[in-house]
Design a protein around this nucleic acid. Sequence first.
DNA 1: GCATATTTGTCCGTATGTATA
DNA 2: CTATACATACGGACAAATATG
Lengths: 235, 235
Amino acid sequence: MATRGSSDLADQLLTDRASLDRGSTAERVADILRGRITDGLFPPGRRLSEEELGGALGVSRNTLREAFRLLVHERLLVHELNRGVFVRTLVADDVVDLYRMRRLLECAAIRAAGEPSTAALEQVRVAVDAAEQASAQGDWLAVGSANMQFHQALVALANSRRMTETARHVLAELRLVFHVMSSHREFHEPYLHRNRKIYHLLAAGDNDGAATALEEYLGVAERQLLDAYAASADR
Amino acid sequence: MATRGSSDLADQLLTDRASLDRGSTAERVADILRGRITDGLFPPGRRLSEEELGGALGVSRNTLREAFRLLVHERLLVHELNRGVFVRTLVADDVVDLYRMRRLLECAAIRAAGEPSTAALEQVRVAVDAAEQASAQGDWLAVGSANMQFHQALVALANSRRMTETARHVLAELRLVFHVMSSHREFHEPYLHRNRKIYHLLAAGDNDGAATALEEYLGVAERQLLDAYAASADR
DNA sequence: GCATATTTGTCCGTATGTATA
DNA sequence: CTATACATACGGACAAATATG
């Protein structure tokens, strides 16, 4: 890699340069950009210039474009021909569609899980613990990450590569939606105890009960998000 | 585009050069490669060299890599770091996983369709007709395409962008599996009348009956494919 | 509506690193 | 272990499209 530029933007971007040694350069660049999108530094609608970012990150345009492609496929960015790439902006319809997919995937996964392996159940517990811990420290961004991890672990119970991968895409997209919530705390806090309850139901072997609880959970979250969308449209 | 080379390979690839004028260069290249993969010219496991293909198609390596990315995302190709891209090889477990996804997506789509729009239902009918017509002409490759179109249309009934897109990926992947069938006719013919029956049930408003019929259909097809896999493993 | 500046799309040549015979 | 082939990544160039005044 060439000597990187040292602009202000570069400093903002490279806060986690320590973990920059795995995978191809394009993948590492994509990791950085993904983080900046999900944490809100690059808000929906923002255009990502090839020259600006390439200079800031010290990578060539070709490599940067490769990273863009990865994120376009994750649906975090959209690509407009001859206009460049933009952080995706989701509308209320997308929220409805995303939650339809979540209900389908997550509830089906739980119901199809049968008697899940202890390792898979353990992953669910780990995520629940992490969310509660982050909540205790007031780190609501981390709560959001742990929550995603929880739902990912739920789908993993079905032991289906493709369901797991599809869920990853859906959940990544969902992070773009969360930016409409003015308060991350208000959005995440109510779900902590629901997460733990679902874990308990699963541990007790009551998959059907867990699926039903999850279904209601998702319905409430969807409504909350749609309300936030309606409110932001008024302003 | 630069002057393309004129190797034998180029002639094989560019049989449909006429339709080479829409979208970005990378997308057009991806379309060509997708066709050659699904029709079997590039069989599973085959390595696609950047230099060889770039020369044959008259595009630069950068552009070709962009096309590779698209197909890797469609799971038709796999990418191994520093080794290149290969046509994906699916194993019996993949068949099981793919059919799990199919059952989930297609049956849920039908059950969630409610009273589908006449336009969406019309798409189903068109696909059924096309399959029967191709069958009458003995064009089994076209029957396979029409069949994919039929299932795609079923999922489209749910009117969910993401379900539709996920289905497209699953069905594209499935085409890789079909190559294990020694006789495309044997595999596709038995399903023609099932397709029409499902269409009739939908048109009559019996979504639940259609979903049940589809579920059985998929179970039979899965078993048939798994048998073919077992047989090819013996040889 | 037009001319100009900016940005992307595409290609090339080359240097470096990695896997494999 | 060496040699070869190939992928990764860089920088520069020009064409083409878009945005701006």
